[in-house]
């Protein structure tokens, strides 16, 4: 199994000095290709910081982060932007769709920043929306859709330009149980299609559906196990 994410002895310290907060405390972690990982922790455990780090939204105070063999721990803002665009598909708790754009336009955004031409962009965005079952909602704006549908648009946006990693931050946090099931089903399918999926959650019920479960607390990894109860759908 090829190594996709390698985190070595990473710390993140906020407010260095007397009142410093160690959000991550010497964390090391390796995630291979085609893994399905849940990172579980309570609020304040450092899981959000870890997720920002994994998503190249943040840089570590110390330690190294290799993504696809490339050291991404000390990059400029623009270099981070390019890495996010190429390597990572984000799925957020609050969907994070742009309200003034239609579903299709939202899905096209990362492709625009990638510099993909209009025709190809259309094709990729349509394919992504079709794959989450939103053929008929392409011209709808976010406020014309249910939460479940909005999250499906967000998933389409995350997979549109085929990044190797899907990073989902509480993807079902804002959804009712029926929609949650639906979203988890799609996420599992994306994993089975060959993507690496990392879910950040505080909900053991969600974490239980992953193949590997990493527990984080006080900025440190407490356990890292293969889920004995994991079952393929």
């Amino acid at each position: 199994m090829k190594k996709l994410v390698v985190i070595k002895d990473v710390s993140k310290i906020y407010n260095p000095g007397e009142n410093e907060v160690r959000a991550l405390n010497h964390v090391s972690l390796t995630i291979g290709e085609r893994e399905f990982v849940a990172i579980i922790g309570q609020s304040g455990s450092g899981k959000s910081t870890l997720m920002n780090m994994l998503g190249c939204l943040d840089t570590p105070t110390s330690g190294k982060y290799y993504l696809h063999g490339q050291d991404v721990s000390h990059m400029t803002d623009d270099e981070q932007s390019d890495i996010r665009n190429k390597e990572i598909g984000f799925i957020f708790q609050g969907f994070n769709l742009i309200q003034s754009l239609t579903a299709l336009e939202n899905v096209e955004l990362p492709l625009i920043y990638r510099g993909v031409g209009k025709k190809e962009r259309d094709r990729l965005a349509n394919a992504a929306l079709n794959s989450v079952g939103l053929e008929k909602r392409k011209t709808h704006k976010p406020n014309e859709m249910s939460g479940g549908q909005q999250q499906r648009v967000a998933i389409a946006r995350a997979i549109a330009q085929a990044p190797p990693i899907l990073l989902a931050d509480e993807p079902t946090g804002n959804l009712d149980s029926a929609s949650s099931k639906e979203i988890m089903k799609i996420i599992k399918r994306l994993y089975s299609e060959g993507r690496t999926v990392i879910i950040i959650t505080h909900d053991p019920g969600i974490a239980q559906q992953a193949k590997r479960i990493i527990t984080i607390s006080d900025g440190m990894i407490k356990s890292d196990i293969i889920n004995p109860d994991y079952k393929e759908d």
Binding site: G55, L57, D77, D78, S81, D82, R84, N85, K86, F90, N96, L97, I98, Q99, L109, P110, Y113, R114, R157
Partner: peptide
């Protein structure tokens, strides 16, 4: 927030 979303999707400063 929109700016944050765009940046997370790979928008550069420019």
């Amino acid at each position: 927030r929109e700016i944050g979303i765009r940046k997370s999707l790979g928008a550069r400063t420019s």
